[in-house]
Write a protein that binds this DNA or RNA. Structure first.
Lengths: 229, 229
DNA sequence: TGACGTCGAGAGCAGTGCTCTCATCGGTGC
DNA sequence: GCACCGATGAGAGCACTGCTCTCGACGTCA
């Protein structure tokens, strides 16, 4: 805790390990070898265990960092758009998510791909993981409050309505009406579906201009959310 | 090739290996060990290499089987719905995909999750992989031909329209107008996004009644496609 | 019957995650 | 200033992995 030289050295080494691990992650995917990381650090493998109790713990650290890094980028991009330009904010959010994902494909796989078996994401991951969601909700809330987003009158099945109302009572969702939250759920799945498809190569032979394609998808989603300007 | 006893024995052993591998896959995920499979078969590990040149080749075989198994199930379910009931056919298709995915989560992860690094899906996988898509297109084509699906008048950005027209020229897509294909792309991403979210646990704390939730999503998608009855 | 080809066993190589023990060396309390 | 303690890294070692190679056995076909 204290900012002793010891603690500083430790923090630095920890950061170095994560740095190297991230490089390996980018180079050869999530099968990164702790021993190889140790070699790159110029240290014997057992030394790394002074900093991370297991390979899983290292991966977890990378995951937390990943969520945070993505959320940071998304928030910065969204903040750059004029507050009153809801569509611009939404496009900024969506494009930032895609850009980050393309630039960090393997990390994206770690965050949103097949979960590693026998591995449960610890509590620490959920806070940064929800930040982009919160941000999207903020856009919707602004729109509703300023009356530029029309509240959809969808008739929701009982259980869905119940779920969506419960979610709506949570802190970050206040001010967004249930029917809109329901639509946001659909859109969110669509957003990640689209990114995953592109990243995992499920659109080859189908799409050639990915930029245009993704922009179009974002606009389709925006229209469904009532975010038109 | 010939149906000699030799060839039969070989085919049987091959099938046994895949069977055991599938069990391991279900039990402990894609990190299945070839040696462990060999042990379960009561055979030394090198013997398995007589049947599969590498672990990757085994996984590939499982993947092909997976696509086929899913497609079979989906086709059977869809075929059970009355031909004129487009919505029923769509719901059958979607629910079958989800059911299969829930029943074979790890296989789903193999097929649609993070791709294994350094592993490229061979040609053999693409045919069975597209069967559900073809089926969805058949539903849309029927609807358009019978004039119960209204062709959307969406204005598509140039590159998107070009892509979608090119796709529309492919065999399985004939008879489905470009704007509808574009919508189908969106829906397909949404469908897999929704299934992945459920399977990978991204909806915990959000959704409690998954059946109702998924049914609702399918109907939202149907409406967007103009499949209303 | 003989030859060939398939098959499984076994040993072995290089690599992995992780544990344990042992020396070293730096910071802290007296 | 000194002695101690705890953090650190090295090294050996265990059990495991994918994969290769060699060798003997055995069935099949000419």
């Amino acid at each position: 805790m204290a900012d002793t030289p010891r603690a500083r050295a430790r923090a630095e080494t920890t950061e170095q390990i994560k740095q190297i691990a991230r490089r390996h992650l980018a180079a050869e995917g999530p099968n990164l070898s702790l021993r190889a990381v140790a070699r790159d650090l110029g240290v014997v493998s057992s030394a790394v265990y002074r900093y991370f109790a297991s390979r899983d713990e290292l991966l977890t650290a990378l995951i937390v960092d990943g969520y945070t890094s993505m959320a940071d980028r998304v928030e910065v991009a969204e903040a750059a758009a004029p507050r009153r330009d809801l569509l611009g904010r939404w496009l900024a959010l969506g494009n930032a998510m895609r850009d980050w994902s393309l630039a960090n494909r393997h990390e994206y796989g770690l965050l949103y791909g097949t979960p590693v078996p026998g591995y449960a994401a610890p509590q620490t991951t959920i806070e940064p993981a929800t930040r982009p969601v919160q941000l999207a909700m903020a856009i919707l809330r602004d729109g509703v409050e300023r009356d530029v987003i029309e509240v959809p009158k969808d008739r929701l099945p009982g259980p869905v309505r119940a779920d969506v109302e419960r979610v709506g009572a949570a802190p970050g969702f206040a001010g967004v009406p249930p029917t809109l939250i329901a639509r946001a759920f659909s859109v969110w799945a669509q957003l990640f579906g689209t990114i995953s498809f592109e990243l995992f190569g499920r659109l080859t032979n189908g799409v050639t201009d990915y930029d245009a394609y993704f922009d179009h998808q974002l606009r389709v989603m925006a229209r469904y959310l009532g975010v038109v300007r």
